[in-house]
Computed example of a mutant assay.
Amino acid sequence: MSKNILVKAIDVTKNYGQFCALDKVSLEVARGEVCCIIGPSGSGKSTFLRCINLLERMDGGGIWVNDELVGYRREGNNLYQISDAQISYQRRRIGMVFQRFNLFPHMTALENVIEGPVHVLGEPVKEAQERGKAMLERVGLADKANHYPSELSGGQQQRVAIARAMGMRPDLILFDEPTSALDPELVSEVLDVMKDLAASGMTMIVVTHELGFARNVANTVAFMEAGKIVETGLASEVLSDPKSARTAEFIKAVHS
């Protein structure tokens, strides 16, 4: 794998019974790049993210992150599933921001942010707290460190979730429709944090319906439908001059 490629997916397949959720999906994402995945609901976008992060086991193909095959070990020509402990180890360097925040309700914002560094990375609590406060300051929530999720708006909760993902020092952060559960007036505060993160050089794969964000921030865009990547390329080209009629139809429908 080229040293510039951080994520490489080849022919990834995922089935749920008779339903094919992913049908030989292939994609490359370079280090420091923002890739936005767009497409209609049910097209396999979130499933693909979950396969990268090992929340779903793929049925075929392979995904490499940092030159490491995720979810499997290779012996000769054979692949073997790795253990849950090994999966947890691989997952440490892949952050994930979910649609519904997924914060621990009984923990403060700061406690949510330091949970992973302390209990997964083994950082001393004091050191993790200092870094956690810095992460919260970076997302504009320095004054909310001791607030519980129920005391925060949806946008603030999502920013805590981004700080939590950053706290693990990941090589890659996956965003699964991070603004879709937010009231419209709260969307921009989350997108602004994501723009800042992108500007800092973080590699990001973002499933989103926010085409303005994709146009302004993404390096590349992939359009998915029915478990396949229909079109992929530079964001400016895919969003302004798509080669696929189906991509053009989708973009027009979202903008109309």
Score class of each variant (00 low, 15 high):
residue 1 M to I: 06
residue 11 D to S: 09
residue 15 N to H: 09
residue 16 Y to Q: 09
residue 17 G to H: 05
residue 19 F to H: 15
residue 20 C to V: 07
residue 22 L to I: 03
residue 24 K to Q: 09
residue 25 V to N: 04
residue 26 S to H: 03
residue 28 E to D: 15
residue 28 E to F: 11
residue 29 V to T: 14
residue 30 A to H: 11
residue 30 A to S: 13
residue 30 A to R: 15
residue 35 C to W: 05
residue 40 P to H: 11
residue 41 S to F: 07
residue 41 S to M: 07
residue 44 G to C: 07
residue 44 G to N: 02
residue 47 T to K: 14
residue 48 F to D: 07
residue 49 L to P: 05
residue 50 R to M: 15
residue 52 I to A: 03
residue 53 N to T: 03
residue 53 N to W: 13
residue 55 L to A: 14
residue 56 E to A: 10
residue 57 R to E: 08
residue 58 M to V: 01
residue 59 D to K: 02
residue 59 D to S: 03
residue 60 G to F: 11
residue 61 G to M: 09
residue 62 G to Y: 01
residue 62 G to S: 08
residue 63 I to K: 09
residue 63 I to V: 11
residue 70 V to M: 15
residue 70 V to S: 08
residue 71 G to V: 08
residue 74 R to A: 03
residue 74 R to H: 01
residue 75 E to W: 03
residue 79 L to E: 14
residue 80 Y to D: 02
residue 80 Y to H: 10
residue 83 S to A: 03
residue 84 D to A: 10
residue 86 Q to H: 06
residue 89 Y to H: 10
residue 90 Q to C: 01
residue 94 I to G: 06
residue 95 G to T: 10
residue 100 R to K: 04
residue 108 T to K: 06
residue 109 A to S: 15
residue 109 A to P: 00
residue 111 E to F: 00
residue 115 E to F: 00
residue 115 E to H: 00
residue 116 G to N: 04
residue 118 V to S: 01
residue 118 V to L: 01
residue 119 H to R: 09
residue 122 G to N: 10
residue 123 E to P: 05
residue 123 E to A: 14
residue 124 P to A: 05
residue 129 Q to Y: 06
residue 133 K to E: 04
residue 134 A to M: 11
residue 135 M to H: 11
residue 141 L to A: 05
residue 143 D to S: 07
residue 145 A to E: 12
residue 146 N to H: 12
residue 147 H to G: 05
residue 148 Y to C: 02
residue 149 P to W: 02
residue 149 P to H: 04
residue 150 S to V: 11
residue 150 S to H: 14
residue 154 G to R: 02
residue 156 Q to L: 02
residue 157 Q to V: 07
residue 160 V to K: 00
residue 161 A to M: 14
residue 161 A to C: 14
residue 162 I to Y: 12
residue 163 A to R: 06
residue 164 R to Q: 03
residue 165 A to N: 11
residue 166 M to Q: 04
residue 166 M to G: 02
residue 168 M to I: 10
residue 168 M to F: 08
residue 173 I to D: 00
residue 176 D to R: 12
residue 179 T to R: 07
residue 181 A to G: 13
residue 187 V to R: 12
residue 188 S to L: 10
residue 188 S to E: 13
residue 188 S to Y: 10
residue 191 L to A: 05
residue 193 V to A: 15
residue 194 M to P: 06
residue 196 D to V: 06
residue 197 L to C: 05
residue 198 A to H: 03
residue 198 A to G: 09
residue 198 A to C: 07
residue 202 M to T: 04
residue 204 M to Q: 12
residue 205 I to E: 10
residue 209 H to Y: 05
residue 211 L to M: 10
residue 212 G to E: 10
residue 214 A to C: 08
residue 216 N to T: 12
residue 217 V to Y: 02
residue 219 N to F: 00
residue 219 N to T: 10
residue 220 T to K: 14
residue 221 V to H: 08
residue 223 F to E: 10
residue 226 A to Q: 09
residue 226 A to I: 01
residue 229 I to Y: 06
residue 229 I to D: 13
residue 230 V to Y: 09
residue 231 E to K: 14
residue 233 G to K: 06
residue 234 L to M: 12
residue 234 L to I: 08
residue 234 L to E: 15
residue 236 S to F: 03
residue 239 L to T: 04
residue 242 P to L: 13
residue 242 P to I: 14
residue 244 S to T: 14
residue 246 R to L: 06
residue 249 E to K: 02
residue 251 I to S: 00
residue 252 K to R: 15
residue 254 V to G: 09
residue 255 H to P: 03
residue 256 S to Q: 15
